[in-house]
């Protein structure tokens, strides 16, 4: 196959991949809709959840309440969703690989925003699938599949670019290392951020629940999202995984590459500034988790701010400061 054919294949396969994410999303929505008619017998007590913010998460976290009951219909929808996600990931991977093969000479497919987004989304979904069993991530399914679908479509429609060759400055093994690490960290931070958002949503919901006298415990989505303490812990674990990788990408590999390419390892270029800001905010997140009174909600808020700075660096800097940044390759 010629390079051009690989490029076309990459684009076509992405559409198929999108269709499967769509099926997966529908299946998971159906799963949760079906859940409404199933009572949540072991409803998560609001009291247990509140204690997460009080600093006793080791205790509540260790013995999660029994999983809410599920119906057979829910399970079969869940299986369909998971299956479709797996198929979508295979197509997604094929699309990424073809994109790399489409370039002449062959290269890693991370030289512009389109390609970065394509690969970053793949990391999010693969991360979710890898952790699915261990952490019982069924509650994250609609969020992840919906995210993958929306982001990929936006990527294909708004950011799509022809395959290009790299300029000399980008031809370095450090580009590969720096960008792989940045993409993995971004994918993981994104998973962590989703969890933090769910944490805040669920916390609001629990507060409403406990203040309203209507005792009806619906079997809806939020009642099946794990207890706050568990959300908090999962979020922490994902962030703890991502933070060192980000440290490596932004503060070690990046500077080494910059020194080779531009003769300075750190130059306060807007991209570098925002990579630094992201790092500091996530350091603050880890601190927040270790500070009494900041656990739980405050930490979740900090995590979301961190994710916002990360995405802003990726999207905002390129659009608003494009030419002012030496990193404008990724425009």
């Amino acid at each position: 196959m010629s390079h051009d054919e690989f490029g076309t294949l990459s684009d076509q396969v992405l559409w198929i991949c999108g269709v499967f994410y769509f099926i997966a999303l529908l299946a998971h929505l159906a799963e949760w809709a079906a859940g409404r008619s199933v009572p949540v017998s072991a409803a998560v007590p609001a009291a247990g959840a509140r204690s997460a913010a009080g600093g006793t998460d080791t205790i509540t976290g260790a013995r999660p309440p029994a999983a809410p009951e599920r119906s057979e219909r829910m399970d079969s929808f869940a299986r369909v969703g998971l299956g479709a996600t797996r198929v979508a990931v295979v197509f997604h991977l094929v699309s990424v690989v073809c994109r790399g093969l489409a370039a002449d000479p062959i290269r890693v497919p991370w030289s512009n925003m389109y390609e970065f987004t394509l690969t970053g989304t793949l990391v999010v979904v693969v991360g979710y699938l890898v952790l699915f069993k261990k952490y019982q991530l069924g509650w994250l399914s609609p969020v992840v599949t919906g995210f993958a679908l929306v982001v990929l479509m936006a990527d294909a429609l708004l950011l799509h670019q022809r395959v290009g060759t790299l300029t000399d400055a980008l031809e370095s093994p450090w580009l590969v290392i720096h960008v792989i690490a940045a993409i993995i960290a971004t994918g993981a931070f994104t998973l962590g951020g989703m969890t933090s958002v769910l944490y805040l949503v669920k916390e609001r919901w629990l507060e409403k629940q406990s203040s309203s006298t209507a005792a009806a415990a619906p079997g809806g989505y939020l009642s099946r999202v794990p207890a706050l303490a568990q959300l908090d812990r999962f979020s922490y674990q994902v962030h703890a995984f991502a933070f060192p990788i980000w440290t490596f990408a932004a503060l070690i590999a990046g500077p080494i590459w910059a020194r080779q390419a531009w003769g300075r390892y750190w130059g306060w270029d807007p991209k570098e500034v925002w990579a630094f800001i992201t790092w500091v905010v996530y350091a603050a997140y880890l601190h927040a988790r270790a500070t009494a009174g900041w656990k739980g909600r405050a930490a979740a808020v900090v995590a979301i701010i961190g994710l916002a700075t990360l995405w802003f660096n990726f999207v905002g800097i390129n659009f608003f400061f494009g030419s002012g940044s030496q990193h404008s390759y990724s425009k």
Partner: peptide
């Protein structure tokens, strides 16, 4: 924590 935020 506050100084970290200020730095950012």
């Amino acid at each position: 924590l506050i100084l970290l935020f200020l730095l950012a």
